[in-house]
Design a binder for these strands. Sequence first.
DNA 1: AATGAATGAGACTTCATTCAT
DNA 2: CATGAATGAAGTCTCATTCAT
Lengths: 225, 225, 225, 225
Amino acid sequence: MARGDKSGKSKLKEKPKPKAKAKTKLGRPPASSSAETRGRIIDVARRSFAELGYEATTNRSLATEAGITTGAIYHYFESKLDIFIAVENEVQRRVYLRFGAAERSADTFIGKLEAVLETAHELNREDATLAQFLGASRIDRMRVPELAAAHTEMSAQRVDFFDDMVAFGVSTGEIDPADQATVSAMIHTMTVGLTDAVSNNLVAHRNAIDGFKALLEGKLLHRPK
Amino acid sequence: MARGDKSGKSKLKEKPKPKAKAKTKLGRPPASSSAETRGRIIDVARRSFAELGYEATTNRSLATEAGITTGAIYHYFESKLDIFIAVENEVQRRVYLRFGAAERSADTFIGKLEAVLETAHELNREDATLAQFLGASRIDRMRVPELAAAHTEMSAQRVDFFDDMVAFGVSTGEIDPADQATVSAMIHTMTVGLTDAVSNNLVAHRNAIDGFKALLEGKLLHRPK
Amino acid sequence: MARGDKSGKSKLKEKPKPKAKAKTKLGRPPASSSAETRGRIIDVARRSFAELGYEATTNRSLATEAGITTGAIYHYFESKLDIFIAVENEVQRRVYLRFGAAERSADTFIGKLEAVLETAHELNREDATLAQFLGASRIDRMRVPELAAAHTEMSAQRVDFFDDMVAFGVSTGEIDPADQATVSAMIHTMTVGLTDAVSNNLVAHRNAIDGFKALLEGKLLHRPK
Amino acid sequence: MARGDKSGKSKLKEKPKPKAKAKTKLGRPPASSSAETRGRIIDVARRSFAELGYEATTNRSLATEAGITTGAIYHYFESKLDIFIAVENEVQRRVYLRFGAAERSADTFIGKLEAVLETAHELNREDATLAQFLGASRIDRMRVPELAAAHTEMSAQRVDFFDDMVAFGVSTGEIDPADQATVSAMIHTMTVGLTDAVSNNLVAHRNAIDGFKALLEGKLLHRPK
DNA sequence: AATGAATGAGACTTCATTCAT
DNA sequence: CATGAATGAAGTCTCATTCAT
């Protein structure tokens, strides 16, 4: 759907799009499929929530980007909050499907963790808005009460996923049982850092992951001369 | 259902009338100086920007919290943007003053980095809104174009600070020159992670830092059995 | 807080999906004729106009209640206004058919009036939405200009009906010719009061009618002791 | 569909009032008093609620009529509901102050009731919007759930007022104790009828009251010849 | 005959900012 | 210095109606 964008970082903010005064008519437009339009809204919404956040994303901008009018949005979603929830579910599903596969591909804690980090990088290369949405939504859930209220269920997924991995590390002897909380906090910090600090820059993202992997393997730093 | 309540977004939003009840705390002297009021606005603003973000922070809420009226704010600041800049400068100053001292207290890369991490924790214990504002403002600069425009100068401070530290690590032989970008990206990710993931939870913050320190020293993980 | 509910204005608003569960009641035959659907719309509309009024009644709610979609309504009626007119005509017809019969059943003014009041009560017992619609529509005609425009013809029916009755009362000597306007205004007030004040409460409706009848017969009040 | 509403009658509906493109400026206008503006809003609101009802009364129309902008309304009232409540309280206060005085001016049931009916007429002559608002608000409380929710306290006033009067009638022997509910329902019907059927027509209002008074005194109807 | 995707206008409300007092 | 009345733009959402299928 990419239309010409002239360098301006914020694609999402600048298009009143008068569309050459198109002769828009009432009624159902020729060739319009429900599922396709709904998908377009979710897609556009993920990008906008990721870039501008929940509050700064207006239904007008979503509608314009999706090629419809504000009213039409409410044919598909009951409210802006509903759109957010739909995006969140879709993103969570896509990400944890891949993370799960990565985790199962190795049989040491360090192997699993590195596989997940690599998967995070792959996902980021495929679609940077996933990680960006994840980072943005964590912030917005803290800022916008209604988003926090609508969370709960899916949220646990993330915590559980990494907690299980740490428990597995304890079982293999890689992690001292006393360090469990420490390792958990560190992984949480690391993954949040990756989404928030470098997900919008593929090179930096690659470098940060390489740094962490080297650190995990004890190869990054040497003794001073 | 009660009328004037609507759900009350957060702590910062629920004090409609702090007036009348004159003698709060140590009773702010009637001779409240201009400078004091300005300071109070900045203080209140840091907290609100940290918790709710730039857009969700209203001039009215700032005024109410600071014990004045909306109009009065414009005696001290030209605009909301101006308040944000003032807060940002104050926070940067306070943080990098301490980070600088920490960095000078050690003479190896690893020592400097650990000292800075410890300082981050100390600061967080003293006033959690500093780190929270830092995290929130990084997001808001990406979301609100006017904030990005007002940044530049101070921003470099952060990048320079850690770049210099990494360069120092190369000079001591602790870092392979080829790994410079890698280490930079990793430190950036680590510090952003600390502000975004755990700055609102002292225990987790402590744990994450302990984890990173152990990792830096190669003591966190062991070979699987 | 749950999402898709918002408080549900009233009974008429809370049935989003009456479909699927095909065999309601006596199982409306798949050969649901055009006329039957039209009748169902009028029925549902009378109820909704009576309870919520014209503006608050939405085409969507009518469609849902009638088991069709918004678009389908326009096969039967040109506009919402058209539906209102159809309901109004049907109600007027049903009510004045019965009132006429009642009026003819007595041969004194007082007898006719009491017969009409009794009929009003019977009608109210059979279908309370008739009187409720009558009350609601009188209000809506004052509030919504397009409804007033569409009235005139049928409206006269009511005025004529009672004026004729009063004229009859003059002819029998029951009413002093000079009191004609007075009695008319009083009857109007009485009947409007009955629809507006007590048509939603059978007991009160009964009591009010008994009160008026006793008053008409001079039996309600006594001299003070 | 033709928006056809020409016809006049609805004063409150037709004034975009461009005010000769007045050079409206920002900031506080010269000579503006809080209390006066607030009073103007309530006044305009009573009229509009009375004529158009709650839902059809828009804040734009209120603002225009009151000579301000929509935003300014929210300086005085938190919501449209709040305006309604303010109007309702004011009207109830004004009406029952006068009704109370009337009731105390006589010492028989029939005397009290007639005095109240006369007062109703006086009030109607002074300001017809009082009775009209009372009638309209009764309807709107049934139609708009939020209005019903905000009622309770003041509502009882009406019921109590007339119940007390009927009880007094029993004590004087004017009313048979067994007829108490009957008389109450009849008075309720009568007063509602007066507001709903004839409050917008002074002559009819006068006639209806004269009719009821004659009826109460047993002088209205005679035996047929 | 019916569906349901879409429009466009308009409703309530919030908010940064201005300015007479 | 400070207050608070007021503006104007923008945001979320609703709804009668239209029309391709």
